[in-house]
Design a protein around this nucleic acid. Structure first.
Lengths: 157, 157
DNA sequence: CCGAAGTAGTTCAAATTTGAACAACGACCA
DNA sequence: TGGTCGTTGTTCAAATTTGAACTACTTCGG
């Protein structure tokens, strides 16, 4: 247990900067979405992912995986979005256990109305702060993290 | 509202990679801390920040700011840590309104016991994945984000 | 075709998080 | 000194999130 290599100064600084920045960024995005559209960031992400999916629909499990939320968490959020008419549930043709979350027309309009303000914040607080190189490297880094943290990676160590 | 510049392919890829990776990473860290020490990541951060502070104590507001959590959220978590004897509240000598969160000896031991496993995960899932250059650039990027997202930055735009 | 094992989604209780409202105190100016 | 404004921390209700338990369905070997 004591054999863990400690973080040196640069590493510690990078980690704490990451923690602070990611929390602050999440806070701001959440703030903007709630103020402008009454949406949670999670809810916005659900709408956005659905809008990009074929037929604007995805299986619950697949959606939960892409948005990185628990199954029960997604059930709850889809329920909320359904109440507001932004999403519908449909039966899955190929699997009777399955449920498809479908973006409604109203949900699509809500997304189109909300996206510009959201993108503006993401630009101001992240994207536009970075040079092309920095952007590319950050993307590379995050892809590495994703590969290392995906549940499938756990079994392979 | 429609004047928002959209994200191009690289930008969008970077943003989604960031979202996915940060959520997965947070999940894993949370998982490890809960399993090994029964601590939330927020709780661990509180202990860690206190341990690095002079006299192992910080004002509630200051602590909330560094951990990036709401005031009420910190009140709750300090309550939880107090129940477990890891933290104590002390009156602030210079300001009767103030409350000092103080890391106890037991809290310090808990942190020392927990830190190695935590650091190991942070290394495996982030730090050790990066070259020195990548680490430096990520730190720089995150410092930029912090500067842009800190509440004080809002007034200056 | 049958049954075991696995998968999909929901329900449920518990924990956490937040903002608004509030009470107590400090700072500052007339 | 008195009053006003800002700050500090807590309380409270509401919303969200998670894992475990559960039901229903699919898969696959025999």
């Amino acid at each position: 247990m004591t054999g863990a290599r400690w973080l040196d100064e640069r590493e510690m600084a990078a980690w704490t900067a990451y923690l602070t920045a990611s929390h602050l960024l999440e806070r701001r995005v959440e703030e903007q979405l709630k103020a402008d559209a009454g949406l949670t960031h999670a809810q916005y992400e659900i709408l956005a992912r659905l809008s990009a999916a074929p037929d604007r629909r995805l299986r619950m499990t697949e959606l939960a995986r892409t948005v990185v939320v628990s199954k029960s968490g997604l059930t709850y959020q889809i329920g909320q979005l359904e109440k507001r008419g932004l999403v519908e549930r449909a039966t899955c043709p190929s699997d009777d256990r399955g449920v498809l979350a479908v973006l409604t027309e109203q949900g699509m309009r809500c997304l189109e109305r909300t996206a510009p303000g959201h993108v503006t914040v993401v630009r101001e607080l992240l994207i536009d702060l970075l040079s092309p190189d920095e952007l590319e490297i950050m993307a590379r880094v995050m892809r590495k993290v994703e590969a290392a943290t995906r549940p499938s990676a756990r079994a392979l160590s």
